[in-house]
Amino acid sequence: MSRHPPHPEHSGEAITIMKVDPILDAGVVVTSSAQEVSGKLADRCSAYFDNISPPLKWTGVPDVKAWAVVVEDPDAPREQPFVHWMIWNIQGELRSLPEGLPNSDFLVTPQGGVQGRNDMGGFGWFGPRPPAGHGVHRYYFQVFALDEPIDMDPETSLAELQKALKAHTLAKGEMMATYEAPKPQ
């Protein structure tokens, strides 16, 4: 009889925010009305349900020219964290994203926003869908304040985006939400 560990096997790689050192000491506070008091992300944002991007809000810092958001799941049973969302060139004066952004590469709103590919191969948001029986996964919503927009196309890899973030991040912050596969009815 084999015993399985009570929690998921984690990817061995650090998430993006751990690899980027900001220029300023100021932090960015990130929140979402789609996060329940328990920390769980609302079902409507999960790929098990409606798969819509959650609304996000964050605090500002001086001299921001653009924002970038990366959402990763380090609890995915693979070597690299699972990328759920990459979006950059959000206008510097903005402090939020609305719920339900379209899954397209170039966004009309917010104007100038560019979305890269998630690890399912599509552009934009791919909501949590941890394997059944794999336990609770953590989803890190990482927000980066940039000193200039990033001149990269939607086919940019996370590794390339990370290089740009390392060069241009003024401040950073994160929100961690959780999600677990729904129990069979």
Rank of each mutant, 00 (worst) to 15 (best):
R117N: 09
P110T: 15
F123I: 05
S38N: 14
I87S: 08
L107W: 10
T109D: 10
E13H: 08
F106R: 14
L158V: 14
I52W: 00
P110Y: 05
D25A: 13
P62R: 15
D63Y: 12
R138V: 01
P22S: 09
L146P: 01
A181W: 05
T16I: 13
E148H: 15
H137I: 06
W125L: 05
H10G: 02
F106I: 10
I17Y: 09
L41G: 10
P74Q: 05
S2V: 12
W67N: 04
D25E: 14
R117F: 13
S11R: 00
D50F: 10
L94W: 11
D43T: 12
L94E: 06
E99V: 07
P81E: 02
K57D: 06
A171M: 04
S104G: 04
P62F: 15
A76I: 06
P182G: 02
F106A: 06
S11A: 10
A47F: 14
H168Q: 12
V69R: 06
L24C: 07
D50W: 15
E155R: 02
T109M: 05
D43S: 09
D151I: 15
Q142D: 00
E79Y: 07
L170T: 00
F144N: 00
K183F: 11
P6I: 15
V20C: 07
K57W: 03
G133Y: 06
D153F: 07
P62L: 14
T59H: 02
K163A: 13
Y48V: 01
T156D: 00
E148Y: 11
L170H: 01
H168I: 00
L101Q: 15
G60W: 09
K57G: 06
R138T: 13
T156F: 03
M1T: 10
K65T: 13
L170D: 01
R138Y: 05
G39M: 12
G173A: 07
G173C: 08
D147F: 01
K166H: 04
R117G: 02
G173S: 10
I15A: 02
N51D: 15
G112V: 02
P22A: 12
R95M: 12
S104F: 10
Q162F: 04
V108K: 14
